[in-house]
Design a protein around this nucleic acid. Structure first.
Length: 569
DNA sequence: GCCGTTTTCGGCCCGACTGTTTTCAGTCG
């Protein structure tokens, strides 16, 4: 039972309680607990086994601690089982219809006895909803329009797709003379690994013009709602985008407000309240008087807070930094001096060794490692010992053709299902840089997965574990890993950890990267490039490192080549 | 259901938009 699964149980419970019209604050308590559990690196299952007091976690009291123990020990939650018997899954699915929340669902289920999306659709088509008190023709129409999207709802897009779309729209809005400022906000600005929707903020003397401009954008499919200051559109990609237009003097307050996260803002507002202030998207107010609002710095300063980088605004790390008196200077893309994971035409890449080296040099990198797949990955033309040694000889030849960049002879070596390495030690010891990875057998039980990882970590030739969990965002979960145990072993054996920067991986994720940092493990941000354009994903890896609170010092490939060389064994 | 150095009971962030209302509830972020 991993933390995500425990969190999912409490989220499901919260949905069901909402439909049951439970106390909304009780529902929130379950949602908060879910979030706390899934954003903790240490395994709650292990903590339960070790008898650790779970009430030390914020938002987990006596009762929730008892429920977590129940879930871990019995693999189920008795109250959840009971609620699921009362409320069919089809009723919970209704929550995913845009514009339909728990109150409406409760009426559909309790008063109209509808038990599935199909039954709801039939009732709407028959005009039964509009006949019911509190509902009208428009509500019925909106449900009919949106019900087919319930299946699509909840799908999230990658941070790469989110940034591309949001940046294009921001840049288009900025072309209007009446728009003074425009910025992406929300989870996209916080650089969360996926975004459920997009938020864009603009300041303008003419909000109507800004909204007209957005409505006419080629990326936009349809306008879903439009008021005096707010417009929601659906993009052709299916993603929804909110535009908010505020006066210039409120830009900072609105940017702070719409960047979130919700959890961060709850703390900020509580802090304002304690200081006798009120914060909303128009400014910070003492009584009627606005005391800040034009810039984010002013808004935070009005509450005695330093400006907090958006990537940290999750109510996870930032307020402990505030309490300790210093927000760290987070790592930046410009700090990165080497890239230690990439492929060439020798395995499944599209560029030659020289092309990759030249592209890396052009981007200002001072050292790279060429790390082809090992032979187990036959689909990607993985290399056996002979081919690998020939390939390394080619790399040594290329070194003579290019100056100003070091090229390491590396390998991305598979950790096989039986916990042996795909290449013999006598080959690995000839390498400058060995990445050990899991590609196959990710579904194996935790015990075997850990045996494989520990075998690799204890191998003296292994420098780093690449994309440690093997997850593919939105596609497959990572292997069942005891993160804490893996990191302890890595710390003990001088093995580094990768943040794979590809937007489909981002592995380690930010929670686990923080845990690695806390154990003093050097972290390497790598692009896993398969072409000369592959280096573009670096920014996504850096963003996740920033979300993890990492500074330049925490990231090994910010070091100069001379410094980095000393870390190699 | 959680929390607390004004509180162990009574709070728990705040506002825009929509639809169905004649002054507000529901949803959303």
């Amino acid at each position: 039972m991993n933390n995500e699964k425990i969190g999912a149980i409490f989220d499901e419970l919260a949905d069901l309680l909402e439909i049951s019209e439970a106390n909304p604050f009780r529902v929130r308590a379950y949602r908060n607990a879910s979030r706390t559990i899934s954003s903790t690196a240490d395994s709650f299952a292990t903590m339960v086994k070790d008898g650790i007091d779970l009430t030390q976690f914020q938002g987990i009291g006596k009762d929730l601690a008892r429920q977590i123990v129940e879930v871990v020990e019995t693999n189920k939650h008795s109250q959840l089982v009971e609620l699921k018997q009362q409320i069919p899954q089809g009723v919970v699915d209704m929550l995913r219809i845009p514009g339909v929340g728990p109150k409406k669902v409760a009426i559909f289920f309790n008063k109209l006895h509808l038990k599935s999306l199909d039954q709801l659709k039939a009732a709407a088509e028959a005009g039964q909803l509009a006949a019911f008190k509190g509902f009208g023709k428009k509500t019925e129409q909106s449900i009919l329009q949106n019900i087919d999207m319930a299946a699509e709802a909840g799908k999230r897009i990658s941070i790469a797709a989110a940034r591309t779309a949001a940046d294009a729209i921001v840049n288009d809005l900025l072309k209007l003379d009446s728009v003074a400022h425009a910025s992406v906000a929300g989870s996209c600005r916080r650089r969360k690994e996926t975004c459920g929707d997009l938020d864009v903020l603009a300041t303008s003397s003419d909000p109507e013009a800004a909204m007209d401009r957005l409505a006419a954008n080629e990326l936009v499919d349809s306008v879903l709602l439009r008021g005096g200051t707010k417009q929601r559109v659906r993009l052709k990609s299916g993603v929804e985008l909110d535009l908010r237009v505020v006066p210039d003097e409120s830009y900072g307050a609105a940017l702070q407000y719409f960047t979130g996260s919700k959890e961060h803002n709850v703390v900020v507002r509580q802090r304002a309240k304690d200081l006798g202030l009120k914060v909303n998207e128009y400014g910070v107010f003492r009584g009627e008087e606005r005391i800040a609002g034009a810039t984010e710095e002013d808004v935070y300063a009005a509450m005695d807070l330093p400006w907090i980088p958006p990537e940290l605004r999750e109510n996870r790390l930032e307020f402990s930094y505030v309490d300790s008196g210093k927000i760290p200077r987070l790592v930046e893309s410009g700090d990165i001096k080497g890239d230690l994971h990439m492929h060439t035409t020798a395995s499944d890449g599209a560029g030659t060794i020289l092309e990759m080296a030249e592209a890396a040099k052009q981007r200002g990198l001072k050292y790279i490692a060429i790390t082809e797949h090992s032979k187990r990955v036959s689909m990607a033309n993985g290399l056996d010992a002979d081919r690998l040694r020939t390939h390394w000889a080619e790399i040594r030849e290329v070194r003579k053709k290019i100056s100003g960049i070091e090229i390491l002879c590396g390998i991305e070596c598979d950790i096989l299902e039986d916990a042996t390495m795909d290449l013999d030690d006598n080959v690995l010891e000839e390498a400058d840089w060995v990445i050990a990875v899991l590609h196959y057998g990710l579904q194996q039980p935790r015990e075997q997965i850990m045996k494989r990882l520990l075998t690799a970590i204890k191998n003296p030739n292994v420098n780093i574990i690449g994309h440690p969990t093997g997850r593919m965002i939105g596609k497959r979960e990572g292997a069942d890993i005891d993160i804490t145990e893996m990191l302890k072993a890595a710390a003990d054996n001088g093995v580094m950890m990768e943040i794979n920067a590809h937007y489909k991986r981002l592995d380690l994720n930010e929670v686990n990267a923080t845990a690695a940092r806390d154990m003093g493990i050097p972290i390497v941000i790598s692009t896993d490039s398969h072409s000369v354009n592959g280096f573009d994903v670096l920014t996504y890896g850096v963003d996740q490192a920033r979300r993890a609170g990492l500074t330049k010092d925490d990231v090994a490939n910010t070091k100069t080549w001379a410094q980095f060389k000393k870390l190699l064994h």
